[in-house]
Nucleic acid binder design. Structure first.
Lengths: 186, 186
DNA sequence: AAAATATGTCAACATGGCTGACATAAATTC
DNA sequence: GAATTTATGTCAGCCATGTTGACATATTTT
């Protein structure tokens, strides 16, 4: 962002500071939380931008990244579960998934109990790429937590969790916890 | 997300788990910050999903939302500034901007000093829509801050700020502060 | 045997990114 | 004052990734 301030000279009138959140607590209800809305926009923009350069070398996009990420984190997950997480149609998923399979980043295995299922697994190659991308993003996260004090990780986790749809939240947390176990051990 | 747990064989325990961040500080460097990466994904997905239903009624998409949002927040901003914020090309911007102008949500006025500029302003109609969308998102944000204790707003602001590219951060903060002044009075 | 489920596929279309080339008017520079 | 640079717009086409709808196949469930 070169310079969003170049037009700054004329516009502002009186100084005003501390408009929305006066002292300690929540903003006045009528007042929109502009700061968080915009910070979230910029933070997320930079956050998802990190892996782009790497993905470019593989001729992959963000769609591939998302698929690879969740498959790697949830070895043996069903296609339907992935669709639910990504909130896209099977046709959209099909395209990128096919490329990831064709190029050896993901394999599909027939389900043991239910042989209709095509369970998804990252190959070593896929796991390596997924990890590489995650660590790029982790660098940014750790840099942030390093700038902030201790407790920042927990605070961020609580904030982000509270931002998730209530009816999703438990499922998401379970999914994260489960994936942690799956990947931490082996 | 219907059910990402259908394939969850065992019972989950507590979320979060001490896996990555032992005690006070930053995670072990080798460990990717999976939890934050995924929470950010889900939180942002739900966050930007809120306005979609409203936008549908106007036959607008997220691109329109972003443009309208920043124009409303920065009355009189230059086209070039908007391009910098959105990180897109003028051709991409042109398409959605034209629709917003044609349908009376944004007006362009010739710059006073520099008559090449087409300064952007939200019309009352545009301001109303922008506010409506922002308040949808604000509901989610305030609900989150309500669930968390006091200080959550400040903690979130600090976390999100720290997640922004270092060379962007000051500009972003200035932009937010300036917009607050411009819109609070106005 | 019939119905439901998990997955895949074909075809068409929409949105919103992109590049490249070029046009216009106004400001700036020589 | 002519030449150049800047701010913006526009045409044309391409690409990635989302959508809907219809249909196919194998397998499980009823």
């Amino acid at each position: 962002m070169a310079d969003i301030n170049s037009s700054a000279k004329t516009t502002p009138q009186t100084a005003g500071g501390e408009a929305a959140t006066a002292a300690g607590g929540a903003p006045r209800d009528a007042e929109a939380a502009w700061d968080i809305i915009e910070l979230l926009f910029f933070a997320y923009r930079d956050f998802v931008g990190d892996p782009d350069a790497v993905l470019l070398k593989y001729a992959f996009g963000r769609a591939h990244h998302r698929v690879l990420h969740f498959v790697n984190r949830n070895p043996g997950m069903k296609v339907a579960d992935l669709l639910d997480i990504l909130n896209i149609t099977k046709q959209s998923l099909g395209r990128v998934l096919k490329q990831l399979v064709d190029q050896g980043f993901i394999v599909q295995k027939e389900g043991a109990q239910d042989r209709r299922q095509r369970l998804l697994y990252a190959t070593p190659k896929g796991e390596a790429l997924s990890l590489k991308l995650a660590q790029l993003q982790t660098e940014r996260i750790n840099r942030a937590f390093g700038e902030l004090g201790p407790g920042a990780h927990e605070a961020a986790r609580r904030f982000l969790t509270a931002m998730i749809d209530g009816d999703n939240r438990e499922g998401v947390l379970r999914q994260i916890a489960r994936a942690d176990r799956a990947k931490t051990r082996g």
